[in-house]
């Protein structure tokens, strides 16, 4: 098991290098850079910019150097100092701009994953063991609605309902009095009181999908011979269900963690804007639009790394629960 994890970790290094290169290429691909769009903006406002001024800015930001040197400098600083560069637009280090947002995004994401699993797995088990029952059809019906409704629409509807009927303003993650305050227990409670809305909004689609996956996988497993074998040993139905078929049906769900993580982070972007959440999504969109290259690049890098890490986590979990995978990659004997 330890050997397997070590092997997977060594695979991670070249992957992360490639990801950083691609992230950098992606953010330098659009024609022009932050300065050109900045200058255009200034000129459109009637301000003329002197050539020397442009040159000076280019030097400060290192934009006069060839791309590969910019890349190497960027990566060196990240590895060496955890410094993701300067955000042109915010005129602050990227780390300061996104630090708290990343943390809050992670909190929302993890809450969403927990919410998704806690809701989807029991419902999926019920639907599979009571196939074609009334509740199975009901869950299927709501599941498809959940899959079909875009997150932002759900957010708007819930906001409207909360505001019109309960006189609640549910945007943002904090009440106004806590928004700028530093962390305290009160602020935490305040966040917990508000976090449910984004969690539901972001999690609905995933929950609906997961219910379908769980139901399908479990139905497959229930028909397998080993279930009958266990039954002929005299095991009670509920114990049998959780020891054998559910255990095997969860495996495919574990492998979805890998893509669940980035999907939630990016799926959160539109919701984040609609609900005015202090998360990464809205900032990332802005950064991309204004060609704030280090900020955008850092986002792409962090999201891609999350994907890779998510996949790694799900693979390790999978190897942990399924011996066939554990012994497949490396022999332990």
């Amino acid at each position: 098991m330890l050997g397997y994890i070590l092997m997977r970790l060594t695979h991670l290094i070249p992957l992360l290098i490639v990801i950083s290169i691609i992230s950098f290429i992606v953010i330098t691909l659009p024609p022009g850079d932050y300065l050109t769009s900045h200058i255009t903006r200034l000129q459109s406002q009637g301000t003329s910019v002197a050539q020397e001024e442009i040159e000076r800015l280019k030097r400060t930001y290192g934009l006069d150097q060839p791309a590969y040197q910019q890349y190497l400098r960027w990566v060196y600083r990240i590895v060496r100092h955890g410094d993701f560069g300067m955000s042109f637009q915010w005129e602050r280090p990227v780390r300061r701009v996104i630090g708290e947002r990343i943390a809050l995004t992670m909190v929302i994401s993890i809450c969403t994953i927990v919410f998704t699993w806690v809701v989807a797995i029991p419902i999926g088990i019920y639907a599979a063991t009571h196939q074609y029952s009334f509740l199975d059809y009901l869950f299927t019906f709501f599941g498809f609605i959940g899959l079909a409704i875009p997150n932002f629409l759900l957010a708007l509807v819930l906001m409207y309902v909360a505001f019109a009927h309960f006189d609640l303003s549910v945007t943002g993650l904090f009440s106004p009095e806590y928004a700028a305050a530093s962390w305290s227990f009160g602020k935490f409670i305040d966040m917990m009181q508000r976090i449910w809305l984004p969690v539901i909004v972001i999690g609905t689609g995933g929950t609906a999908g997961l219910i379908r996956v769980m139901r399908g996988c479990l139905l497959d497993e229930l028909r397998k011979q080993y279930v009958i074998t266990a039954r002929t040993k005299g095991l009670a139905e509920s114990r049998l269900l959780f020891k054998y078929p559910v255990r095997l049906a969860i495996n495919p769900l574990i492998s979805t963690i890998g893509w669940l993580l980035p999907a939630i982070v990016s799926g959160e972007a539109i919701t984040g804007i609609v609900l005015n959440l202090p998360t990464t999504g809205p900032v990332m969109l802005q950064a991309l639009m204004s060609q704030d290259m280090y900020l955008a690049g850092s986002f792409v890098l962090i999201l891609s790394s999350l994907t890779v890490i998510g996949t790694l986590v799900s693979d390790i979990l999978l190897a942990w629960v399924d011996p066939r995978i554990r012994y497949g990659g490396v022999s332990e004997k």
């Binding site: 080993y226 266990a230 054998y244 629960v321 399924d322 011996p323 066939r324």
Partner: peptide, 11 residues
């Protein structure tokens, strides 16, 4: 059973 392959839980 007939199928010793599938009659055991693999995990």
């Amino acid at each position: 059973f007939q199928e010793p392959m599938t009659s055991f839980s693999p995990v």
